[in-house]
């Protein structure tokens, strides 16, 4: 069972109060994009053993979307942060580097 801290409520929320929203930091490719870009936007997902970034929604709380960084192996949560960003903030990256030196995920490290 995951417990994530919603950055909008500021409270630790039980997994059953949240809704999972898939992988974080996807860039949308819509009409007019190349077939390769569109295909990878629709189907290309990370499936890492280790550090992962996800979208979550505080579904029965404040109803806001937020991002979470966690480890898929140990279920350790490195931190949660605002959804209004294209990449994880430095504090989150530093927190991950402390626990998993040399980690990479898509273009982030």
């Amino acid at each position: 069972m995951l417990t994530l801290n919603c950055p909008y409520c500021g409270l630790d929320k039980d997994e059953t109060e949240l809704a999972y929203g898939g992988e974080a930091h996807l860039k949308r490719f819509g009409p007019g994009s190349t077939d390769e870009d569109f295909e990878s936007y629709i189907f290309g997902r990370e499936n890492p053993k280790g550090v992962h970034f996800e979208r979550w929604r505080c579904a029965s709380g404040c109803t806001k979307w937020f991002h979470a960084a966690r480890c898929t192996v140990t279920m350790e949560v490195f931190g949660t942060y605002s959804a209004q960003t294209f990449e994880p903030p430095k504090a989150i990256k530093d927190a991950i580097s402390k626990k998993r030196p040399g980690w990479t995920w898509r273009n982030f490290s």
Binding site: C9, L11, T16, E17, A59, S60, G61, C62
Partner: peptide
């Protein structure tokens, strides 16, 4: 104030 769920419903 706590917004959460009780049983199956939001509250």
């Amino acid at each position: 104030l706590r917004r959460t769920r009780m049983g199956q419903v939001a509250c």
